[in-house]
């Protein structure tokens, strides 16, 4: 096979994969009517996702906030303008870093385990068994997971935002000589000065988290459902799930920021 053929083949496969994910998302949306019957399971899933991701997310959030404050603080110090450190940390945490960190960690912890669970079920015929019993795997397996992550990701993101700002405030006080009061006041002003109920940064960030949660769960379930060939296939499904989730988090994150800040003003 020559190079153009290989590229063509790989492109076709990508398009095919993307089509599967989009189709799965649509069918998940169509099966939302089953949510009342799956409430218990959905809540279990959400709770597990939260518990599994919480410790790592909090540690990473604290350090990310600290790095953010340090990075900007070093530059601001040259202009003697460290008073706005709280504002900058709060806004970039809420708009970009919070959802991004939460998304990546959820992809690595919860998304991967979703792909492994569903992939294992797929290669051991359990998914087929559901079909044979006329139990739709989409509303039984996929929909509760998508809803669980779509709900958990914004909740965790709110926590991540808060812990990140705390991390930033420590660095500000310890290393940059910005008092806690000044830092928190400027952070609070940035987040409270808004004609809306929540400032744009916060709701854009939470909206991002909602999209990320949905995307991670859908992509991970899709990878699981397409697993084949035993334990090796499950491993590959996990790899695909995490890789595709991270790519989507970055691309969708860009698109959403662009949309809210450049397209829609």
């Amino acid at each position: 096979m020559n190079a153009p053929q290989l590229v063509g083949q790989s492109l076709r496969k990508r398009v095919n994969d993307a089509g599967f994910v989009v189709d799965l998302l649509l069918r998940t949306a169509l099966s939302l009517g089953f949510l009342p019957r799956r409430t218990r399971f959905t809540l279990d899933m959400a709770f597990n996702a939260g518990v599994r991701a919480l410790p790592v997310t909090m540690v990473v959030a604290a350090f990310a906030g600290a790095i953010l404050a340090m990075q900007t603080g070093i530059e601001l110090r040259r202009f003697g303008d460290t008073g706005v450190l709280g504002t900058i940390t709060a806004l970039s945490m809420c708009r970009e870093m919070g959802p991004f960190i939460t998304g990546v960690i959820l992809a690595a912890t919860v998304g991967s385990s979703m792909a492994a669970e569903i992939g294992t079920m797929k290669v051991s015929d359990e998914v087929t068994a559901l079909e044979v019993m006329s139990v739709d795997p989409i509303n039984y397996l996929v929909m509760p997971r998508v809803i669980a992550l779509a709900v958990m990701c914004p909740l965790l993101t709110a926590l991540t935002d808060f812990v990140g700002i705390c991390g930033g405030s420590l660095v500000a006080a310890q290393n940059l000589g910005v008092s806690q009061t000044l830092f928190w006041n400027s952070a609070y002003d940035a987040l409270a000065s808004s004609e809306h109920f929540l400032p744009k940064e916060v709701y854009v960030g939470l909206f991002k988290a909602l999209v990320f949660g949905t995307a991670i769960a859908t992509v991970s379930c899709a990878a699981g459902l397409r697993a084949n060939g035993g334990a090796l296939g499950v491993g590959l499904a996990v790899q695909t799930a995490v890789r595709n989730s991270v790519i989507l988090i970055i691309v969708l994150g860009f698109i959403i920021t662009w949309f809210f800040y450049f397209l829609a003003g």
């Binding site: 079920m121 051991s124 015929d125 359990e126 087929t128 068994a129």
Partner: peptide, 9 residues
């Protein structure tokens, strides 16, 4: 339909 290994959930 009885699956190899049962295919239990």
């Amino acid at each position: 339909y009885l699956f190899q290994n049962g295919a239990l959930i």
